[in-house]
Structure formats: C-alpha cells, structure tokens
Amino acid sequence: MANESNGKDLSRRRFLKNSGYAAGGVIGGGILGSIFGMNFGGEPEPSTTIVQQTNPHHALMYFTREKDFEILSAATERIFPEDENGPGAIQLGVPYFIDHQLAGAYGNNDREYMQGPFFPGSDFQGYQTRLKRHEIFMEGILAIDRESNKEYNTSFTDLDGEQQDAILQKFENSDVKMKGVKSGEFFQLLSTATLAGAYADPLYSGNVDMEGWKMKEYPGHQMSYINEIENEEFIEIEPQSLRRQHEH
C-alpha cells in the first residue's frame, strides 16, 4: 500500500507542477481540499492516505504498472485540466473511471461486433480495428511515452503541460504510428472516456463528489422537475447521485 500511496502523491505533485498552480499558489484550499483531504489549504505536503480511506474505488483493476496509469492520468488531465472553474480529470477520479471501464464490458467490447475479417474503413465507416478498447488504450499509452521519449528524451509524465499538449496533438492528428489503429482513433476514445469519467454518475468512480456536475450546474439524478419546469429563472439544484436510491 505504501507504494501505491507514494505513486498517487507523485501523480498529484506532477499534476500541480504541470498545471502551474503549485508554483503560483493561486489555488484555494476549497477545491483541492475536498479531494486530497483536509488541511490542504496552506499545507505544502498534504497526506494522501485519507484519499485511500475515503474512496476504496480508487484502486486499480485493469492496469498492472503504476507508470502506465500515471501516463493515462497525465493525459486525461491535459484533456480536462484543473482551472479556475474547478477540478480537472485527476481530481475527478477520471483515471480510475477509465481503469475500471477497461477491465469490464467497455474494455472488452462485449456488446460490439468483433467478428472478422478486419479491413481499414473509410472515414465514414467507424470503428474497424481488430483491437479491443483495452488494447487500444494500452497501445496508446505506450505510444504516448515512446513519442515523448523520442521528442523530448524523457517520459510523458515529466513533461510540462505545453509539451504534453504537443504530444497529444500529434495523436489527435493521427501523426503517430500505432499498431492496428490510427492514433487519432485512440485519442478520440481517450477524450470521450475522459469526459465520461468527469460527468458520469459517481458510482463509476469518476465525477468525485459530483464535482463535475457542480461545475456544469447539472443536478444529476432528480426524481421530478414538474414543479420547476415552468419557472422562467435558472434554478440551481444541489446535485444528487444514484446512490440516493439506496438511502431510503
């Protein structure tokens, strides 16, 4: 457990460094504090053990190497970064969401047609690789680091934000060679999954504390708006998740 805890700490520090907030110290305790535990506000080195105690879902069920997970985490954070609007992908638990999805039906394409023969399709024929999604992610993450080493002679997780963006941009443009799939297709999966992790019900381990919904002023699971629907004013409603269904 010590290793895992240490890994998270590194990840968080890199995130802080990359997003530029650690140096500038512009962020308030309110946002980060809710994720990293109490007393973060003025504390330079917060404890991460609290995270582990409060969120047992934040552990790995697909990835086997911490490093791969760190690369994934850093990439999702660039796609959906921490900013003055609120938390980014890492704080929202997006990397864990993706890890869990890759271990299940999504990652294994259980409800997708995966019979051959396989041919590259036109730009209008959709998903045509023989790789399953979990394989595309794994290939993609290794390719991200390969590309980073090629371009900058160091791991993706050690790059600054702009460098990371430049790498991801190459993937989006399908400018990176990958086995069995275009890098743009991987990037599309990655960015779609990142948004899903930011905004899916927290039951899937992302959207921690419904922070994604709060930023978007989306109230989540509400039983009824019949009394509000005719109201001409915008109505802010405290979000609720599906967990509420078990609390009565």
């Binding site: 660039r78 796609i79 970064p81 609007n85 991801l168 989006e172 978007k216 989306y218």
Partner: peptide
C-alpha cells in the same frame, strides 16, 4: 479539448 474547451463547454451548457 483542453482548458479552453473545458471553460467554454461549462459556460455554454
């Protein structure tokens, strides 16, 4: 994607 996308997509939701 990225910070501009996040800002705008939150703003216009």
């Amino acid at each position: 994607w990225g910070s501009k996308f996040k800002e705008k997509s939150l703003h216009y939701f």
